[in-house]
Each structure stands twice: as structure tokens, then as C-alpha cells.
Write a protein that binds this DNA or RNA. Sequence first.
RNA 1: GCCCGGAUGGCGAAAUUGGUAGACGCAAGGGACUUAAAAUCCCUCGGGGGCAACCCCUUGCCGGUUCGAUUCCGGCUCCGGGCACCA
Length: 872
Amino acid sequence: MQESYDPAAVERAAQEHWDGSGTFAAREIPNRPKYYCLSMFPYPSGRLHMGHVRNYTIGDVLARFMRMQGRNVLQPMGWDAFGLPAENAAMQNGVPPARWTRENIAYMKRQLRSLGLGIDWRRELATCDPEYYRWNQWLFLRMLEAGIAYRRTGIVNWDPVDQTVLANEQVIDGRGWRTGALIEKREIPMYYLNITRYAQELLESLETLSGWPERVRLMQANWIGRSEGTEISFAYAGDLERQMGGPGALKVFTTRADTLFGATFMAIAAEHPIATAVAAGDPRIAKFVADCGRGSVMEADLAVQEKQGLRTGLHVLHPFTGRPIEVWVANYVLMGYGEGAVMGVPAHDERDFEFATRSGIPIETVVKSASGAYDTVVAPWQDAYGEHGITVNSGEFSGLGFQAAVDAIAAALEARGIGRKRVQFRLRDWGISRQRYWGCPIPLIHCASCGDVPVPDEQLPVLLPEDLVPDGSGNPLGRTSAFFACACPKCGGTARRETDTMDTFVDSSWYFLRYASFDNAQAMVDERARYWMPVDQYIGGIEHAILHLLYSRFWTKVMRDLGLPSVDEPFSNLLTQGMVLNHIYSRHPAEGRRQFFDPAQVTTSERDGTVRHTATLPGGEVVEVQYDGLGTMSKSRNNGVDPQRLVERFGADTVRLFVMFTAPPEQTLEWSDEGVLGASRFIRRLWTAVHEHVRAGAAAPLDVGALNEGQKAMRRIAHQTLAKVTDDIGRRRTFNTAIAAVMELLNALGRFDDGSPQGHAVRQEAFGIVITALSPIVPHVCHVLWQALGHDRALIDEPWPAADAAALVQEQIEISVQVNGKMRARVGIAAGADEATVRGIVLADERVQKFIGAASPRKVIYVPGKLVNVVV
RNA sequence: GCCCGGAUGGCGAAAUUGGUAGACGCAAGGGACUUAAAAUCCCUCGGGGGCAACCCCUUGCCGGUUCGAUUCCGGCUCCGGGCACCA
């Protein structure tokens, strides 16, 4: 037994025990309640970062806790191994993405193992392994058969210099990140998954996800964006009819059919067929449409750009009044949503109001508030009235409330066959085609005579060649005939293989099912998935609140509907962990790019009230740097903290303790080097305290009936702590307060200097509680200290103890006393005292009397066992 | 721009269902031990007033509900996450 704490030795011993006895190898055990604990698998970027450490520690704490609570736990790990960073690294270093990725996996796996996570490593998978991605391809073909996967065109960012499609991330201020060229939008053929078919179910079953944070459910609901509205067809006026070469109608979708009589313009997207037709004969419109075709496709960019529009001079007719309404081409109308056209009602829509005011379009009020407070005609200096109200100036539909007006107008439109009520979702179908190399090949073959032919199942997987090195211009698969040259499966003629690969969100949409069927070479998933699914606890970053989680929910449902062993919802409980932030320091040299500095290397000084930050350049020159606030740790900002160095210096337990203690899991965590020292100090103090206790000799059996007041009090604290930790970890997931409670218990044990045999027995029990309670968080040191306390069985195999209710009983309790809501006194009362007794004691108290004075109590509020408020 | 969060001492935070604001820890200051340093241990530690008992103020800002608000409601400010090809 070591007298001084040696983290490396302790962690080696504990990990050797767990590995040697196969502690974390999970098996399906029919009659034990299972607990599938899953952390979002990492992208193998090269090194573990603090966000990973936080994520996997949270998962490990829960997995170990639930295991001790008697659950049959599965905690697997894998690698989200396809993606853009591998191609970027390949371009920089000339190394194929496959090699870079596999080397990173090997290194990061060693790092993960050093953290002492209770993972069943037999189930490890990497999405770049053909044994994994073959099932992406297989299921894609099933989706194609089921009509869930289909082909159509989509718009991408096009770099005209590199002749390549760019990811949104690679577009900076509308320019290509490598070429600096102005980005264009380009329409190309792509494959889509029909997630909108599932929109209603995805929305409805959010309500069943009671184990998900409310905010994530809200975000998903808003993302799916169900709105009930009316589709209205506006017939072409004569001028538009001539332009389009015949009669027709402009279709719009609106949630405000009640404002139909206030429509004073129509706005169509630049990509709308009418805009295209008009542009052919009008250079101004053509230029405007072309301008809209520049820049990135990102919605955030589109939303902040100034609302612009041009009048076409062409009209549609109001369905009830027959009045001509002018059609405008506008950059703020999205072709991808609804019909790509909207009716403009400036009086009752903020955006339309802004556009109309600037463009000199008339504003006509057709809704007034029910109270009549807002019933004048809107003038340009006023604002749009967007609330629901009573219709006015709306012909036969005047004087109706919102719903009545919508119903009546929709019915009248429907009777004439020019409109109907329908539901519109904001959610769009999922485009999965990527014009990139390092991803899962889409299993299709293009044949000049047969068209798009699916790759037959027996030819799967379509193997991705692993020796290519991308160069930034186009997809290298498209230049590799060994990959794309193939025979058509139907006619046998010369054909070309699809060179697009799948979105990496596909890979991560079902990996949790594969962990349960990890060694099955014959099927994507098998019956074992029914045992383990759904995931009982999923843990990952809040940044995945919408896309990854929504795609996974969709994919799981598709697998269910295709008859595979799957579930309705993949994740019963979700914990969204906050980001790990660190300070950012940078400077702009006179020439070249902005430089970022490692916060650990920045010196901060203060003189005359001015704070200065300085850093030393590689050449030795000391320069002033600016503080840019807190931000996520990233390589590009040079503010990452390497977990590996901390583990080597302090041990994994210290790092785990720090990340769990510093902030509750859902909150952002600000990095602090000093905090790590504090965590290390606490573990050493625990080590010393346990060894001092053990040196005092073996403890007598605890006789709870024979304890004196001091011993009872000590025992009460120990059991209160146990109850609190059990609740904090098991229910509240506030690991920080669990740790704080154990710290208090250890402090109390330090003050408890009872040398009697029963005192020693109380201490033995309390140290056992300290070590057990901390063991999910700092498992190595607790494993070893548990042995030091004289136990033979490994702590991880012990059941989680229940707090002794008898030990928690308190005879005397303290009541807080307020006078007029202000804290004035504390009084001790017997635990069972009734309200009258408590009132008597409180009102008789001289401190209370002082504040009441001559006044008589008007009201006395009593919160049993807690507080009395005397109102005078 | 839209959707979703957050803001409490010098710092990270706690206060679980509307009921003692600042637990626990970090930093700082003082002391003990030591030849010395490190380590360790003890004390102080939101602001103001008072010899003291004790009193007043304080949870981003403004307003409201309540006997009582860090907690609920309305309106802001700033920071963070997401916005469909980063993962």
C-alpha cells in the first residue's frame, strides 16, 4: 500500500483489474434491467479535446452509477470517421485521408483508454470501415425501393476557380476559402431522403420524449415548423398571361388567409419560373436574378441581406375583387419553402411592411384589433399590425374573427377550385449527396441506355478506394476510372459509377443500432438490437440539438418501417452537455494573417489601471496581443488544452474530477488551470485521510444503538451525503453538487476526532460512503482506496448502498423567521412540533418582538419545517 | 434576420416545488510548521455603516405579480448554440 498518492500507479492497477476481468464486456441478460449508455462518438480529428473528455466522463459516471444500481450496462465507443477534415489534412500533408484517419483513431483510442472509461471495446466501430458503411448503402437501396430516397436537383456553393463544390464552412464572406473567388450558386443533381414524409410523426412523438430537455424539443418542433394555412391561386392578368404564353395562376401559401383583401403585391423568388420567364426579356430583371444567384446558399446570410425587389410590371388578379396585383421579384422569398411565392400584405406583416414602405407599395388595413384600439388605416410612419383581430374592408368576409375569416375565405376559394387549406412544414427533404471523396459511396450506376441503376446487393459494398489524395479541385473519385468505370448491371454495357458520397450525418444516424449487432456480418442489425434499444441515456453537445438528433430519429423510424429490428424513438433520455470554452488571444500583424496565441503562454499585467496581454513569438520577440473573449477550444484559435498532458501530470481522476466539479453538465465550462490543481489537491487529501484512518487499525462492528450524540451527528451527515449524491447523480445529473457534498463530508470527517471504538466504526462506514459516492467520478483512486479499507471485492462490483433512514432522523430542527419578508432570526424547535407551538415560540422570540414592536401580526405564514413569515 | 439558451462575490459556482442568497472550490491576504522553499494545516474573504449588539444595500437592466422573487410574468442589453454541405 502506497503512502503517497501516485496517480500513474493507481490508474494502472485499476485499469488492469477492469481489463483483466472483462468487467465492461456487455452481454444480453434477459432478466436484468438493461441500461444503454451512449456518448456521441468522436470525429477522429487527431487528439482528444476537452469537450470529448467532458462528454465521455459524464457518460462513464452514469454508466458506472447505473451498473452499481444493478443495471446491465452497455457503454460502447466508435469513430465518426468520414468527413471533410481528413481531406483538408490530406491536401496539407499529401497523406491519404484513410491513413490519416486510422492513425488518429489509434492515437485517440489510447487517449480514451487512459481516462479509464468503462467501455466494451469489443464493439468498437469506425464508419469508414466497409463492414460498417456497406449497410449505409444497403439501406439506401431499400429506401430507393420504398420511394424514400429519390433524385432531384439542388443548389450548392460553387467555386468557379477550383471548379469545385464547397461546404458552407468553406465559404467565407461569400468567397472560396482557398481561392478567394466569389462563390456562385449552382444547381446539380442530388439524392434526397424524404424526411418530410415523417414530419408529422417526428413532431408528434417529440411529446413522448419526456427524458429530453425541453429546449431541444422546442428547437426541433420549431425546425420542423408545422403551419396550417391556405394555398391560394392568383390567376394571371392579361399582361402575365402574354408573358407566360397562356393562362395560368401564381400559387402562394399563407397562414393569414384572413388578410387576403390587404394583399397589395406578390413577391416571387428569383428562381421562380415566372422570374425566369421575365428575365429572358428584361435585362434589369435578368441582372437582379443573376445577382441573387451569387453568394452563399446559407440561410443566415440570406436572412441578413437587405430586402430587395424589382417590379416586373406584370400582374395577377385578386380572386375576389378581380383587382390587378403587381408581381415583384424579391431576394427574401425562398424557392425552397412553400411555393416560392408569397402574397404581400404590408399592413399586417412586418417584413412585407418594411418592403412596401421602401418600395412605395400601397398599404391597406384589413384587420383591426377586437378592442378597436387599432382600426385606422396604417400610415407609413406606423407599424404593421401582425396580431389576430377582426376583418375589415374585406367585402363579404368583413367583421369576422381570425379563424372564422380563414375558414370562410378558404371555403369560398375551394368552392371555386382556386384554393384549399393545407399543412406546410418548414422542414425540407434531406439532401445526402456530397461531391467529395472521403465518404460512403452512393451505390448507383449511371447507364446511357438504362438510366440510374442501383448496384445489386451482391455487389455491395461499393468500396471506396483508400489511396487517393484530394487536391481541392473536384472529387478525385471522378478522375479515377478504376472506381467509376463499370458495367451496367442491367444491360452489361459500359456505365459510370456515381462518384458522389453520402453526407456524414448518414453514418451517425444509426451507429447506436450497430453497436448492438457489432459482430453480425450477415445483417445490418439483428434481434440483439431489440434487447438494447432504445438508448437509455444519450450524451452529447448541444450543437447537435437539431440536425444529428433529428436525422437519427428519422433513420430509426425508416428502419422500423422497413421491418428491421428498430424502435420508434432511438434515445429515451438526452443530456446535452455544454461547450468547453477557453480565452482567445490574437493579434493582427502588419502583414499576413491574424495570429492566435495559446492562453497558457499569454502574460497579463496591469499598470495604472490598464490591462495588457503579451506573448512571446517563436523568434523571442515579445508582442502585445488582444483579448477576444471566451470561445470554444479549437485548433484554429490555438486555445485548446491538451487533456493528455493533464492526464500525464495529474492523472485521469483529477481531470475527470475537475470537469465534473467545475460546472453542471449542461452549462458551458470555462477552462481554469488553477481549478485542476484544486481537484488534484482534493484527491491527495482524500488519499491521506483514508490512509490515516486505516493506520489506526481495523474498526469494530458498528452498533447503531450504542452511538452518542456526536457519533449520531457524524453518521447523519454521512447518510445525508449518500442520499444527496444518489439523487444528484441518479435524478438531477448535477455532478458538481454531488462532489461538493462529498467534500463537505470529508471536511466533517476531518473535524470528527472521536478515538473510541464506535467512533472509529462510524468513521469506517463514512469513509466507505465517501469512496463509494465518488467512485463513478474518480474510479481509479476509489478502486484502490476501497481495497485499502479492507474490502476484497472490487468496488465496481459492489451494489450502490441505500442511505439508512434511521440515521437521517433529526430531533431538533431550525426554522427561519421573517418579519415582513425579511430574515430576522433562526429558532430551534422540536422536529415534530405543530404549527401552534411553532407560532408560539416564534412570536415569543425577543428578536422577533423587536421588529414587530407595537404592531400586531396581520398574518403569519408557516412553511412546515422551514420558515415562518410574520406580516405586520 | 429567425429559433433556442444563459447572465449570481476577484473567479467557477450553490440555493432541487416561490421560502436563510453566495454551500463547495479557486484566487487573494494573514498565521503555523520549516534553516529555506514546496507541500500541508489554521484563520479572514460580496459592498457599505457601526466600538459593539447589529443595521442597510446586493443575483445583467427597467417594470409587474406576491406576505416573500436568483426562481414566475412583460419589456430591454450583452454573451453563447443552431440555421439544413463543419461535425
